[in-house]
Design a binder for these strands. Sequence first.
DNA 1: TTGACAACATACCCGGTAGTATGTTGAACT
DNA 2: AGTTCAACATACTACCGGGTATGTTGTCAA
Lengths: 213, 213
Amino acid sequence: MLGVEIPLLDRPRADILRAAAICFMQRGYAASSIDDVARSLGSTKGRIYHHYPSKADLFADVFRAGMDMNFAAIEPVRVQPGPAIGRWRKMAAIHCGQMIRTKPFQRVVWEGVELYLRGATTPEQREEFTRLMQSRDAYGRIFREAIAAARDEGDMRFGTIGIAEQLMFLTLNSPLFWYTPRPTETDEDIEAIVGEVVAFAARGLGAAEENTR
Amino acid sequence: MLGVEIPLLDRPRADILRAAAICFMQRGYAASSIDDVARSLGSTKGRIYHHYPSKADLFADVFRAGMDMNFAAIEPVRVQPGPAIGRWRKMAAIHCGQMIRTKPFQRVVWEGVELYLRGATTPEQREEFTRLMQSRDAYGRIFREAIAAARDEGDMRFGTIGIAEQLMFLTLNSPLFWYTPRPTETDEDIEAIVGEVVAFAARGLGAAEENTR
DNA sequence: TTGACAACATACCCGGTAGTATGTTGAACT
DNA sequence: AGTTCAACATACTACCGGGTATGTTGTCAA
């Protein structure tokens, strides 16, 4: 249900990925050492360097895993028929839920984008990061096209689409920065938060009040 | 007008602050070295360590300068009479403009908050950071009270106020992550961006469509 | 049984960086 | 003219962390 399922072909890598995601989330990429990740696994550097050639490659793989999970999560909804605004609401809720439920990976995605935009990569890594960014851009385009269609269909009103897209993602991603899991928390609690976030984004994009429930 | 004015009592420190803010913005705190900052000043470490006892103290002072500029910017509007939503719109526009015009400092504020929340500080620095966070919380409270009042006055509708505050700030801060200055850009261009961002936030908070212009 | 190899652990190297200790210099003051 | 001191620059140390080179061990195939 929760629990971040990663292609099980490769179990040892999956454990490393999870630990790395948590470390990178807690301290950031630059401040996380490979030894930190290894320590959190109860092992040593050797284990990580056996599977990954460098720290940047490990980070990139966490990035990739995070994006893979996002694509997989929205895939069932992506091509549903009906008005665009309905699709968008579902995708937005799923995306926002992903930010909460797979937060460590999604924070790495966030930081990866920042690292790329800052150009903090060596030429070789640049190539891999460029692929990852293309994947992220493709993901973004799915949402951009949804809100563009919703506007064309008269269900949304906003100004510059580029700015609208940025504001939408910032809003949907925002739990990355203020949500922390509570032990007593249920799935309904999470859905309540998601509901508020999506409602804010929808209103921000000029959608009519949701007549749901 | 633009140009980040810092208390001129201390000009040498002001130059260091600006250079440090830009460095920290470009590479992040952990990845920025004191030598980087010094190099961007055309000088050496000695200069910086003459004025600041440590890298963390330098960072904290950039943080403080950023918050000082924010307080100063909204001060004229903060106590204006009239409906809360009007005050909020002005403060929101000023705040968002600050994110654009003093971006390097504001990104340091952002990262400073993250560093604090992650606990990435030594006990001594913790104390100074706690003061800075209290300052930021006080700043946040000004906006929180404004939107709470606006809701009481029937001009806004939103759910949990804590979430609403987070979403509002995320939206207003968002230019930190996607705005990059263009050489040809005028003040009106910036105000147009600010207008879109504030409009998104206002709608998100359930405010009626602005009847302005 | 033994060879091979994956999956690690151990030991080591080395560049970069925070911080320090020690000059140097110009200007203000006496 | 000499003293002092702020404002730096220079030179150095200590350490951390990425990466590598080299064991060690369990497993599986022939």
